[in-house]
């Protein structure tokens, strides 16, 4: 009988720890963690990467990523990342932030990090609500969307309009690479992974600020099954937050080939 050599085609990346996460079933944080870890493994960056976790569901990202990490106050991850990167320009510095963290309390820090062209990579998980505190209205909550602090649905007359962070940051000269991807199906997950890789390439080449916004689900707080939440993301979030490249400076376009 012929013996065939066993080939591993899929494994847990070295850049992920062997820890069970605290994320809810069906939440896309796990997918985002996995993609970032895969890219860091593939690019051989693990030993020179320093992550900055934020406040929100991803507060424990440092437990799951198998490289050096610090943990920032709510919204301040880009400032903390600036401090790390300015001391260690040769390290790879990333922040992992949710939409409450980045687009509400941390708006000043993200805008100015981008404006300075801070040479860091930001991974921005947008799930249209504050997950960690139990599903309150976020700056990204859609008009009419019910949350625990917009129980009748977000009323734009009194609660304002959602913020499209990628479009906003793309207006800044210091931002080199700003794109929005989604984690709702395999095709889009692959595209997200490519964008994550490009973001790191931008940083390695010293091209300045890079951000990948990842549309994500929150089945628990949306009160949906994981499957329905993927569908809700596709049908409701993508029309408001169109996927695409919002800022690709010419030097970055060369990397993308």
């Amino acid at each position: 009988m012929d013996t065939q050599e066993e080939v591993i085609v899929y494994a847990r990346p070295d850049s992920l720890t062997k820890t069970n996460t605290h994320y809810c079933p069906g939440c896309t944080h796990g997918v985002a963690h996995h993609l970032i870890a895969e890219v860091i493994d593939e690019m051989g960056l693990r030993e020179r990467t320093i992550g900055v976790a934020s406040v929100g569901c991803s507060v424990f990202a440092y437990n799951y990523m198998n490289f050096d990490f610090v943990q920032a106050p709510h919204g301040r991850a880009p400032a903390m990342a600036t401090g790390v990167k300015r001391v260690f320009p040769d390290k790879v510095v990333l922040t992992y932030q949710g939409d409450g963290d980045l687009a509400s309390i941390g708006m000043a820090e993200i805008v100015h990090a981008a404006a300075r062209g801070e040479n860091i990579s930001v991974f921005f998980l947008n799930n249209a609500n504050y997950g960690m505190t139990g599903g309150q209205m976020a700056p990204t909550t859609l008009p009419g969307q019910k949350t625990t602090s917009s129980p009748s649905g977000r009323d734009v007359e009194t609660q304002g309009y959602p913020i499209r962070a990628s479009e906003l940051l793309a207006t800044l000269d210091g931002a080199s690479y700003v794109v929005r991807r989604s984690l709702h199906d395999p095709k889009n997950i692959r595209l997200a992974k490519k964008a994550i890789r490009t973001a790191f390439e931008v940083q390695l080449r010293g091209l300045g600020f890079s951000m990948v916004e990842l549309l994500s689900t929150c089945p628990t707080n949306w009160e949906m099954t994981p499957q329905n939440s993927l569908k809700w993301l596709e049908e409701h979030m993508i029309p408001y937050y169109p996927l695409g490249d919002y800022k690709v400076n010419p030097a970055v376009a060369e990397i993308k080939g």
Binding site: V52, V70, P73, A79, M80, V84, E109, H112
Partner: peptide
Amino acid sequence: RAFVQAESELAAINMVYGAACTGTRV
């Protein structure tokens, strides 16, 4: 050496926080 004029004192102290995590004098 590193110098950044931050967007606020809030950002400045958090830049200090990040740099301090590297064990350097900040």
